[in-house]
Simulated scan of single mutants.
Amino acid sequence: MTDVLENDHVRAVIDPSRGARLTSLLLHGHEVLGRAADPTVDPAIADGCFPMVPWAGRIRDGRLIVGGVEHGLPVGDDGNALHGLGHDAVWDSLAEGRYERAIGSPWPTDGIATLTYALLEDGLRIELSWDDETESPCTIGLHPWFRRHLDVGGPAVWRLDADVMVQRGADGLPTGRLTEPRPGPWDDCFRLATAPIVTWPGAVELTLSASTPWWVVYDEPAATICLEPQTAPPDAFDHPGLQPDGAWPRGVWMELRGRALVPVPDDQSGDTSGHLQQ
């Protein structure tokens, strides 16, 4: 059974049985969330907007060392641990738009993840937190899949105001160094200076704000785009240069605000590329 939050401009559908993920988000009547068409993408992470907790992105070889003790985490087809332990679990409903999930082994600590959805006049605010009553490392984030094409209007265009980019090695995982942003397509992590904006000409302009400057951008698929706020880059546990200066953040929020656009002729609908502003 799914839960629905709605007002005059927004309709959000949440499925507590699938990680309390957002399975649908209509802004001004347009469905902006989608599903990955690539059959190589695990169906458990292929749609909607789901929580990543108590880690976000990949951990190399599923190997995590905390306090000198090595812990093994579940790995995917690529041999790395991916996106935490909450995205395909059943979450408990606490109140309208509020959910929680207890998470423990194989993670080295026991904690509670809390996920909250709140309607805005023009969008939705999502908050994710992790509390294990320790100072142990953790990274958390939110993973939305956006459609490149809506029911009307032109294909999506997105722009990133990036300060730096996390360098990836030949295996696709971070090297621990930061570098100048390069042109896409991307499956990369950036530190952004301002909120990313996705525009579907003639339909909706979507502004994504978050409490963290770190965003993973995945725009390689032909049908979808992912812009994922994370409290730290993927695999930050093994790379001091990617870790926070102080305590590891225990929470993240993201706001998705939509503005209706005037329809435009098909031949003026724009391109489908992402652009960097530096």
Results as ranks from 00 to 15, higher is better:
A118K: 03
L120S: 04
E127M: 09
L142V: 06
T116E: 15
C138T: 15
C138N: 14
L128P: 04
G84I: 01
L142N: 01
P106C: 07
T134Y: 12
I103Q: 03
D110K: 14
V75Y: 07
G97M: 03
D88I: 11
C138V: 14
E127R: 13
W145F: 10
H87D: 06
L120R: 09
I103P: 02
L128C: 00
S93C: 15
H149T: 14
P108Y: 14
L119Y: 06
G76A: 12
A81N: 02
I126R: 02
E127H: 10
E100G: 03
H83S: 01
P108W: 15
Y117F: 14
D110W: 09
R101F: 07
L94S: 08
R101M: 07
R147G: 06
R147I: 08
Y117D: 04
I140S: 00
Y99I: 00
Y99S: 01
L115N: 00
T139G: 15
P144C: 08
V75W: 07
L150D: 04
L94Q: 12
H83M: 02
S129I: 00
T116V: 11
H83N: 06
D132M: 07
L73E: 06
A118Y: 01
T134F: 11
G84N: 03
H87A: 08
P74M: 09
S93V: 15
T109C: 13
T139E: 10
G104F: 06
R98Y: 02
G79I: 12
S93I: 14
R98I: 10
S136E: 11
F146I: 01
P106K: 02
D88N: 15
W91I: 06
G104V: 05
G86N: 02
H87I: 01
H143A: 01
A95C: 05
F146S: 01
G76N: 09
S105P: 13
E133V: 13
A118P: 00
T134C: 11
A81P: 00
R148A: 06
A102Q: 13
W145T: 06
E121A: 14
A113G: 13
L142C: 05
S129C: 02
A113P: 05
R125I: 02
P108M: 09
A81K: 03
L94K: 09
W91C: 08
G123S: 07
G111A: 06
V75A: 07
W107D: 00
H87Q: 11
V90R: 10
R98T: 11
G111H: 01
A95M: 05
G123N: 07
A118M: 08
L142R: 01
C138L: 12
W91S: 06
H149G: 09
H71G: 05
